[in-house]
Design a protein around this nucleic acid. Sequence first.
DNA 1: GGTAGACCTGGACGC
DNA 2: GCGTCCAGGTCTACC
Length: 303
Amino acid sequence: MELQLEARPPFSLPAVMRSHGWVDLAPFGRDERTGALTYVARLGTGRVVELRMMPAPGGVRVEVDAVLGEDEGADVRRGVRRMLALDDDFSAFYTLAREEPHLAHVEAEARGRLLRSPTLFEDVVKTILTTNTTWAGTIRMVEGLIAHWGAPLTGHGDDPLPDDSPQRAFPTPARLAATDVEALRAQARLGYRAPYVRELARAVDGGQLDLDAFEDPALPVETVRKRLLAIKGVGPYAAASLLVLLGRYDFVPVDSWAFKLVSREWYDGRPVGRAEVEAAFARWGEWQALAYWFWKWDHAEQA
DNA sequence: GGTAGACCTGGACGC
DNA sequence: GCGTCCAGGTCTACC
C-alpha cells in the first residue's frame, strides 16, 4: 500500500534525514538499496509495520507492506507528518538567514526541519538517553530498549514475527511502565537513567503526564520548557533539544560540543561557558536554536 | 541562586 | 587481562 503526503515547500527528505542523529537510532533506518528512510511503527490497532519513506513531487511517498484500515492509514499519516515536520513554516527564519553568510545555505537546501519520532514520548526517552554518554552509548541503549521491550513486526498474516525478529517498534509507555528498573539497567544498560525512563513511562501510561498537551502551539514556550524540566532526567540541554523537536527554537541546546564550537569560532579557543554560547545566538530570538544547528562553522573541524 | 559531588557506562591508556 | 582515568548532563544536598 502506498500513501502520498504533501509538505509545505521548500521540502527535502534527504535534508531532513541529514538534519539529526535520530536517523541512526532504531527503529529508524535507511534502506540501502533505495535510500528510503524506514521506520518500524506500532499502529493504534497493535499492528507493527515498516514504513518506507521516499521523496515524491511536493512531499513524500510512504510504502507499507500491508493493506491498512482507515484508522491505521490515519495513524501513519499523522506519524509521518510529525516525523518529517511536513507542516512547519520556516519562511521567517529564511528571511533572516539571507542576511547572514553562515546561514545563507539554509533556504536553498531546504534546511530547518529536524527528524522527530512519531510521538513525543519516544523523543523524550531518546533525549534522556543522549545525556551524559557518548553517541555510541545512546545507540546501544535505544537498541537495547527496542530489542527487549519493542513489539516485533507483524507478518503478512497479521501474526507477529518470531521473537528474534530484528525489526521491532519502539516500546509503548505501558510496556516500559511494567518493566523492572533493574531489567532496564541490566538488559538495556541504561545505568542511572533507568528509573527516569520508568518513571516517565508510568506517568504517561497512568495519565498523570499528558505529553500531547506539550504540542499545543498556543502554549508559551516558557511554560512548555518548565513542564519539560519537571521530567526527571530532563535538564536545560535536554529541554532545549526537546523544544526543537516541538518546533520551538527559542533556546540553544548547550552541550559540551557547543562550548567547543563557540570557543573556536569567537573566543580563539579560550574556554567558554553557557552564557557565552547563549550570547552568541541571542540575536536570532525565536530562531536561535536553528541558527546554532545549521550554522556553517569556520572552525568546526578543529573543535 | 550557585556549586560540589555523585550517578553509570564504555573507551582509551598504561602496566 | 586488569586497573585507572576520563567524558558526557542531571540530580541532590548544601551553602
